[in-house]
Write a protein that binds this DNA or RNA. Structure first.
Lengths: 204, 204
DNA sequence: AGTATAACAGACTTAATGGTCTGCTAGAAG
DNA sequence: CTTCTAGCAGACCATTAAGTCTGTTATACT
């Protein structure tokens, strides 16, 4: 029975540090040996558990990335009242973790999209699926906000959702070391202004 | 005298197709041989004109990328009246060329930023310099818009500029094949709404 | 015409990488 | 205690990359 545990533990360790390194250095620029060196493991270990580097990466996307994004960026908004405020808070939190140089999974996702775009359609599908779930959730939250009287009925929920994701992805791309604090501040300020413009207003 | 011309021509050809391939496949995923194969040139030619792959890339950034971005995204806004409209038009134009799968240099820039972030500080500096020029120009245009009576005096020009760049970078990251048309439409729609919220309003 | 050299061709070197394969070892099973 | 195998170590292989170096050719200059 203990072997099952060891198996799981080793796979988890590989995936965790795999994601870290892939994020820091990119997929193509991270060798399997880099990951193994970090964990003092050998090639034998890696290829015993995973068929290839690509299959390994996909397992990371599905097991780690998707779940993390869901819990960090999707679930907090789900079913909440006052979606506009909730969205601003959620994005602000994510940017805060990003500022302290932790893994910000929304950004990790966009990094990978940039890296695999036009190169690996299969992986691209997995990545885009995550984006779709994110977008659908935002749209749902906005629509619910309309019926609950928090959001103006005139807005195009899908357009807003995609604009929100776009600007988030964009600011994270630009948040490189040194300027992240100011950029985050500016971004949240403008985000709130943008969101404010679509609040429901009591008919006079 | 003809040798000078040949020298320039070869270097230009290398840089042009170099940029294309680096954009399509990424810097690290494009070999010098890939570029040479495209042009039916040899290693001797390449290393006769350039010291290394890195120096070659930097020359591309400074000679091609910077100038293209300047003429496509910076110059069209410079000194114009009604900056809000001009910005929307300029961004729309850029996204249109992007939709037809041509080189969109603003996006190329953000792709490279993503690729080199945390890996090559020297190249990062060259890339960020371009961003700074872009941002400064947007700020200047917005400030001029204030004095000319087109833009509300209450806005934070720097925050708006960085938010504009962010959202542009973001939407281009997400504009992968298939969904680009809808995404562009949604984006411009929301961009115009966002810009509208900062128009100068005649005091009642 | 003769020579020097700019511009290039292409074989070669060195280092890294994804993946294979054989073998060892600890713990589960009988 | 013996046997078997999951889990792993690490040498090895094939390929690819950046960069070097020597040789070749066309052109400018005298």
């Amino acid at each position: 029975m203990e072997k099952q545990l060891k198996r799981m533990a080793t796979m988890q360790r590989l995936q965790t540090t795999g994601l870290e390194l892939f994020y820091q250095k990119g997929y193509y620029n991270t060798s399997v040996d880099d990951i193994l060196k970090e964990l003092s493991l050998s090639k034998g270990a890696f290829y015993y558990h995973f068929q290839s580097k690509e299959e390994f990466f996909i397992s990371i996307v599905q097991n780690l990335l998707f779940r993390k994004i869901y819990s960090a960026l999707i679930e907090p908004i789900e079913g909440e009242e006052d979606p506009l405020n909730k969205i601003a808070l959620c994005f602000d939190n994510a940017l805060e973790t990003a500022e302290h140089n932790f893994l910000d999974y929304g950004f990790v996702l966009s990094n990978f999209i940039t890296e695999f775009n036009g190169k690996n359609p299969e992986i691209m599908n997995y990545l885009q699926d995550i984006l779709k779930v994110w977008e659908v959730n935002l749209v749902t939250a906005l629509q619910k906000g309309k019926t609950d009287g928090y959001v103006s009925r005139h807005i195009d929920s899908e357009a807003v959702a995609s604009y929100l994701i776009s600007s988030y992805i964009g600011v994270r791309t630009l948040m490189v070391e040194g300027n992240s604090k100011i950029l985050r501040y500016k971004h949240i300020q403008q985000l709130r202004q943008y969101l404010k413009s679509m609040e429901y207003k009591e008919p006079a």
